[in-house]
Amino acid sequence: MSSLWKWGMIIMLSFGLLTQHQDAMMTSFMEVGNQTFDLVKNIVLTSCLWSGFLNIAKESGLLHRISRYLNPLWSFIYRNPMREKTKDLISHNFMANLLGMGSLATLSGLEAMTSMKEEQKSDKASRNMLTLVLMNTTGLSLIPTTILALRQSYHSQQVSEFVIYMIGIGVVVMTLGLLIQRLIDRG
């Protein structure tokens, strides 16, 4: 990832200079700080709210109780042993993704990453981390809230027909990803 950023930036800046796009690039430099701040501000403020509720669920033991049902699945998917805390967070991340609660999923996903990182010292991604990221990049979801609302607003005749195929694609791609990981990573 970091080498992509490094070389990408150098190549793009050179390409832009060669094709005389320095003005456009400068404008984007000036705008990007503000735009990022707006984006992060939105994520932060909503996530704080979810973080609050998440903490109640944690302290009351609800989170652990829910995740117990998913634990057999995790010991099958995640090859290396994990702490209970990590498992709870992974379950929560997975469920939030399924229900289409993006910011809640991000929050518990990031906390799960922190929890995994506490168990290791190296700066190399562990197999479990890669599995978690893989589960999140393939983005299996059951309720695509944003898209459904958008389609509704255009008075679509088939608002939600695509959902079943979307779930199909999600399941196939996630399974494929986990299979490939199993083949290439024996760690």
Binding site: W5, G8, M9, M12, L13, F15, G16, T19, H21, A24, M25, T27, S28, F29, E31, V32, Q35, T36, L39
Partner: peptide, 11 residues
């Protein structure tokens, strides 16, 4: 975001 923006604006 910077990466994205430069990707777009550098054509």
């Amino acid at each position: 975001m910077l990466f994205m923006k430069v990707f777009e604006s550098s054509s």
